[in-house]
Amino acid sequence: MTHENEWPLWEVFIRGQHGMSHRHVGSLHAADAEHAIRNARDVYTRRNEGVSIWVVEAKEITASNPSDKGPLFDPARDKVYRHPTFYDIPKEVGKM
């Protein structure tokens, strides 16, 4: 079955409050970007959840491949020296 007349899928990002970053909340179908924003307002902000909406067509998103998880993220695991707790500072020095 073909669905060439299906509205494209959009991913929706909402800024919950001033000062916060936009966060992915879900997706929806819409004919174009303006329509997607309107639908996002109805579907994802019925209870004051947002002060700003971003929409992006789902096909425009490039995602990392789950099978690349190891090579991408494992190298960061053994670098404990990137965290402040790695370094012991004598108590006498005080807060740092």
Partner: peptide, 19 residues
Amino acid sequence: GHGLYLYCAAETLGVSRDE
């Protein structure tokens, strides 16, 4: 709205909304 959230979740499994 709940129907729409759920349809979108189903669509991530490779079925289309129209289907």
